[in-house]
Simulated assay, not measured.
Amino acid sequence: MQTDVIVIGAGTVGAAIAFGLTQRGQRVLVLDGDDGDYRAARANFGLVWLQGKGMNMPAYQEWTRRSVDLWTEFNNELADLTATDLQYENNGGLAFCLGEEGLEKRRQYLHTLHEQRGGNDLGFEMLDRTALEKLFPRVRFGREVSGASLGLHDGHANPLKLLGALHSGITKQGGALRHCSRVTAIIPGLQGFTVETQEERFSASRVVIAAGLGSTALAAQVGLHVPLRPQRGQVLVTERIAPLLPLPASGLRQTREGTIMIGATQEEVGFDTSTTGHAASLLSRKTAQLVPALADLTLVRQWAGLRVMTPDSYPIYAQSPVHPGAFVTLCHSGVTLAAVHATIIAEAIIAGELPSTLAPFHHRRFDVPKAA
């Protein structure tokens, strides 16, 4: 089977890129792995988030802002094509602060980020407790809550509906999506690439590796050496309640269905997707500290997923120096960055070259000699 682009990985990153490619008339084949693969896309919290991101990496602040700015149009196009409500809202988002020291520390952190990026738009407001209570009239906050930062560009969406809509959009626009097609080899040739699964072989002029934690081994086959590690995140979900939280917060949001999502841990435990009582206790205590009334809710679900983490936590976008038609795209903010993946990254792959603005995200940034 001959096609223009083969995308390896049908998670949120790969699916968004494939969706953008099919939008632009490319013949696209998406090869997805097996049901037992580690799938960050199915364990996502669903935030479309800008505030607090990009410390010491202004390029990541700018990249995230571009995606957030594009998200409304991206949402509308995808929803119209697939008749799917992604439940996207962008009315702002909060990061709660504990104690006056915590509030001041958050203020200083966000101002430092703004100074690193520059520009006139702060993108956030600091709310004291009185302002926070006016914004959440039905909530009685814990006594330690001193206020919050309000990210003016932040929002949230349903990550599973997003993934399903991307898959539907790919096929509606003429692309092909094959599940249970784990890639075993990428073979560069004079006219492009041959990609092998356990049962089939496919050919394309370009290959995009977006296979999450499986990308390291695949990228090495085309001369790209990308360092990755898994980081476990656990999330709790409560029973459904009447609308209580009008805005999402970092680690706490109410879904359109009424459940409260609570998260997420950051655990360096390797390739372990177990859930633990310790994490459930930790997340529950944190939530009760913020909004004591939530302690009375019944927990109905707990899950764990593995984030795709680079050494500095920022994305990798790279093109093979020896096989220029091969690209690798990796990040742990697949929902937030879906809009730029479907536009800027898709256009770059068609053009055959990543833009210079993405140079800070090349994995060569990790090739720094270690001090003796």
Rank of each mutant, 00 (worst) to 15 (best):
A217S: 09
G20A: 05
D272Q: 05
G258A: 08
G33R: 06
V13M: 08
F141G: 07
T197Y: 09
R206C: 02
T343K: 11
P188W: 10
A339Y: 10
I17F: 00
L228C: 08
L299N: 09
G11Q: 05
V308R: 02
H111T: 14
T329D: 02
Y317Q: 01
V322I: 12
E199N: 13
P230K: 09
L297M: 14
A16H: 00
S356I: 14
D37N: 13
T265V: 00
F74W: 11
D80Y: 02
W71R: 01
F202A: 04
P137R: 07
R42C: 05
E268Q: 14
A131K: 12
P230R: 03
L110A: 00
V5W: 00
L337F: 10
A59Q: 10
P311T: 05
L152D: 05
A288D: 01
P188Y: 11
L224Q: 12
W63D: 06
G118F: 10
G36K: 06
N120H: 03
V291E: 06
R253D: 09
R365H: 15
A371P: 08
S67G: 05
L177S: 11
G192R: 03
L29H: 05
Q26V: 04
T72K: 13
L21Y: 01
G277H: 08
L330P: 11
A346M: 08
P292Y: 13
I241T: 12
P227K: 02
R364D: 15
R307D: 00
Y60E: 04
T171W: 01
L190Q: 12
T276E: 01
G334L: 05
G305D: 10
G192S: 04
R65P: 05
G270D: 05
E257H: 12
A40F: 07
E100Y: 00
L252S: 13
L283F: 03
E196K: 13
E267D: 15
L177W: 12
Q221G: 07
L247N: 12
K370T: 13
R365V: 15
G352M: 10
V340C: 09
I262M: 02
P230F: 07
S274C: 14
V328Y: 06
A264K: 04
P355T: 10
A326R: 05
T273V: 15
T184C: 04
V269S: 09
R285H: 15
V368S: 02
L282C: 11
V68L: 06
R182V: 01
L297K: 13
L299F: 14
D272I: 08
A359P: 13
A242E: 14
L70I: 08
L283H: 12
G93R: 09
L299D: 03
S168W: 08
D85V: 03
K370W: 09
L282W: 09
A59I: 03
E199I: 04
E196H: 08
L31D: 00
M57K: 14
